[in-house]
Design a protein around this nucleic acid. Structure first.
Length: 566
RNA sequence: UGGGGCGUAGCCAAGUGGUAAGGCAGCGGCCUUUGGAGCCGCCAUUCGCAGGUUCGAGUCCUGCCGCCCCAGCCA
């Protein structure tokens, strides 16, 4: 794993956040008014899936706020539903957060750490007459709840005595009752306009094995009961969550007030949506299970593991989180914002290399047959300290098929019969003719002459030439595979029930036998390069020795493609 | 037709009574041994709509309209 510690959360420079949002303002007010004297946040994932870019927004916010205000951020797994959770997910979540550049030190917690405490708290509420054991089944509870416009009605079991409730609750814990036969409910207000306050279920009976507590428990706290108290127990000051929990807040407040324990402030923000993808864990799971993608880390997935494999850097994702801001308005971010963040980062850092995706043979007729020159190429024109390397040049080269047109359209600056072009870091060449396949008429070979005086660095190389193209020596090139990714969906907003009909059937194009400069023979997974004039590519973690696989993370901006489209 | 939120450019988003930041996208141009990168310019007489208060309103008040969330023993 690379060293990529985030210097600060929301800003990369340290000190107060570069860019403030309404959450920062609330935190600052709370500090100023002494409501809290320090800041303590937490990132609370449920280990039932892999983290995605939307979680990254939350991670950057929570860990960022902690850093910006010299506080702490915890990692807490909200593991209250053993039927959906798994250690595979907790491991991946930890890996992804660290990769993103954040650290929770020894503050790795689990809601399940608090099961005992939560049980005691529940008993406190029962003793206060604020909670009761209900015998209604799930369907009945639904019926009794009422609707959005009609109040609910009270359960016939609502007025049991404290003693009976205590006894029943203990026996629920002991496993005397089957799943679904009883619940513990808060006694609040069945006619509240806020449905969350209509005697919410606190515990359900679930004879299931938990990934951490095993078979110790057969009653499990509901999220609404566990979450606020977990925050309280950890001394969380600012409990940052997404908008849909806004009307749960009165319930969370009610619990901590009834219990008389530390009261965090909950702040809600809008979750991230991105164009051309889906973000719900349920749908991502479906893509994986139904094999629409290769797994959670498929480079087309918006998961952090997918983005990582695709070639995204932690820095680019943090920059993205910073750029999109935090607000309460529902929004959909154009995926081009994300892509731009990656280009910006990699442009400054990635090694350049020459690779030809779809090779076309080019013969330099007046170049000596067996001569090979090692020509100097700049590793990164944006960063001199990255130095230079050497690239072999010879009589027979490969160039990109797209870089030659027998009948060039207007403004085509590349190679065509009679035209002149610069071979990057090499010579200026002129096209003398082509060879074609007799049957198909397809151009199979391009013939050129070169001007020996125009080798890069020589005075005559200063000559202005319309275009510069990349190339690779045919005899010295290595074969590589390129995986070209496109958006996973064909429409900006693939929501709705028929979302799967928008899956892009062409989201992956595998191109084998690409030709690359020999220096690329010894790459390691996760190495990132800019293939000049093409895009940023990242070495996949799965390839046979000798033929590296490169994932295209993002293309370079292609103004020619735009011109040609018109 | 209950409750909770949200409406500033194509997409995000600043703005906290003093005359609409910034980014992405788009469009022009400069520059260029990556049609890359970079640079310059253009892109909201107006902030969902309508009234009102004020010398002055995106900001305050009133009314309306639109969108999102909530009726799991999911989180």
């Amino acid at each position: 794993m690379e060293d990529n510690k985030a210097k600060t959360g929301t800003s990369e420079t340290g000190g107060t956040p570069e860019r403030k949002n309404f959450v920062h303002e609330i935190v600052e007010e709370d500090l100023k008014s002494k409501r809290y004297d320090s800041v303590h946040t937490r990132f609370p994932p449920e280990p039932n899936g892999y983290l995605h870019i939307g979680h990254a927004k939350s991670i950057c916010l929570n860990f960022g706020i902690a850093k910006d205000y010299k506080g702490l951020a915890n990692l807490r797994f909200d593991d209250t539903n053993p039927t959906k959770e798994d250690v595979e997910y907790v491991d991946s979540i930890k890996t992804d957060i660290r990769w993103l550049g954040f650290d929770w030190d020894d503050r790795e917690f689990y809601a399940s750490d608090y099961f005992e405490k939560l049980y005691e708290y529940a008993a406190v509420l029962i003793r206060k007459g604020k909670a009761y054991v209900d015998n209604l089944n799930a369907d009945q509870i639904r019926e009794y709840r009422g609707t959005l416009t009609e109040p609910g009605k009270e359960s016939p079991y609502r007025s049991r005595s404290v003693e009976e409730n205590l006894d029943l609750f203990e026996r629920m814990k002991k496993g005397e009752f089957p799943d679904g036969s009883k619940t513990l409910r808060a006694k609040i207000d069945m006619s509240s306009p806020n449905i969350n306050l209509r005697d919410p279920v606190m515990y359900r009976i679930l004879h299931a094995t938990h990934h951490r507590t095993g078979d110790k428990w057969c009653i499990y706290p509901m999220y609404d009961w566990a979450h606020g108290q977990s925050d309280s127990i950890e001394g969380i000051t600012h409990s940052i969550c997404t908008l849909e929990f806004e009307d749960h807040r009165p319930l969370y407040n009610w619990f901590v007030e009834q219990l008389g324990i530390h009261h965090p402030r909950q702040i809600e923000f809008a979750r991230l949506n991105l164009t051309y993808t889906v973000m719900s864990k349920r749908r991502l799971l479906q893509l994986v299970q139904e094999k629409h993608v290769d797994g959670w880390d498929d480079p087309r997935m918006p998961t952090l593991s997918g983005l990582r494999r695709r070639g995204y850097t932690p820095e680019s994702i943090r920059l993205f989180a910073d750029r999109i801001g935090v607000s309460k308005a529902d929004s959909v971010i154009d995926v081009s914002v994300l892509e731009d963040c990656l280009r910006l980062d990699l442009n400054k850092r990635a090694m350049r290399a020459m690779a030809v995706l779809r090779p076309l043979k080019l013969v330099i007729d007046n170049y000596p047959d067996d001569k090979v020159e090692e020509l100097a190429a700049v590793n990164n024109p944006e960063n001199e300290t990255m130095g230079t390397r050497t690239v072999p040049f010879s009589k027979v080269l490969y160039i990109e098929q797209d870089d030659f047109r027998e009948n060039p359209p207007k403004k085509f600056f590349r190679l065509s019969p009679g035209s002149e072009v610069r071979l990057r870091y090499a010579y200026i060449i002129k096209c003398a003719g082509v060879e074609k396949d007799e049957k198909t008429g397809e151009v199979t070979e391009v013939h050129c002459t070169y001007d020996p005086d125009t080798r890069s660095g020589l005075p005559a190389s200063q000559r202005k030439v319309k275009g510069t193209i990349h190339w690779v020596s045919a005899s010295r090139a290595i074969d590589v595979e390129a995986r070209l990714y496109d958006r996973l969906f064909t429409v900006e907003d693939p929501s709705g029930e028929n979302w799967k009909s928008f899956i892009n059937p062409n989201s992956l194009e595998v191109v084998k036998n690409c030709k690359a400069e020999p220096g690329l023979a010894n790459v390691k997974p996760q190495d990132r390069f800019q293939f000049e004039r093409l895009g940023y590519y990242c070495v996949d973690n799965d390839f046979k020795p000798g033929e590296p696989v490169f994932n295209r993370a993002v293309t370079l901006r292609d103004t020619w493609a735009k011109i040609e489209k018109r």
